[in-house]
Amino acid sequence: MAPPGPGADIFAANCSGCHGAAGQGGVAVPSLPFPPPPLAPAGFASLVEPMVRQGGIQMPSFARQLTDAQIQQVAQYVAQQIADPAARTANTAYGGQIFRLYCAGCHSTTGRGGAMVRGRNAPDISQYPAAEALAAMILGRGNMPVFAGHALDVRQQTSVALYVDVLVQAPSPGGAGLGYLGPVPEGAVGAGALLILIFIAVWLAWKSRKAVP
């Protein structure tokens, strides 16, 4: 582990006010609908960095206050010094397993969200940095229950976040993504294209039939 360095100072100056000096999380204040979550599952700099750069639902972006190098330093510091060591043993495939068991029911397997009853919907989680998934698991969001500490331990939470990171930056095999909604719309578009091709073929054959006397 890296010794406390510039990352620690950046953390103390910018992050500890809300997340606590040891990253233990803060308390709800009237201006914030959700309390700042603890940073125990933030075991990977790749999870912390986009959150600091872009901000989340409640957390502001720090791209103007901090340089790129500083953002990388503080992300490293959080991942190495602040997060729970168990979080660093997480892996993406395991997270995918948990995602399909607990998250896909509402947010769909591609994370693009889905309709719930009575006009409610589960949001598209790919519009936020993956670390926002950790906050949602820890704090709950509206109708979403709290998972952290009960259904999921720290390693499992981090694994889910790593998997969500893959969903957020979905690797594209090429072609039109169709909003990455999954195989059903892709199949529907394929079937529609097939139907159009059939009509074109019939039309061509019809024309040539008429042309022959």
Binding site: G140, G142, P145
Partner: peptide, 15 residues
């Protein structure tokens, strides 16, 4: 699988 749980409404919803 009845996979959706709505915490405030306390209902389980089948997707």
């Amino acid at each position: 699988p009845v996979a959706q749980y709505e915490d405030q409404a306390k209902v389980l919803v089948c997707p």
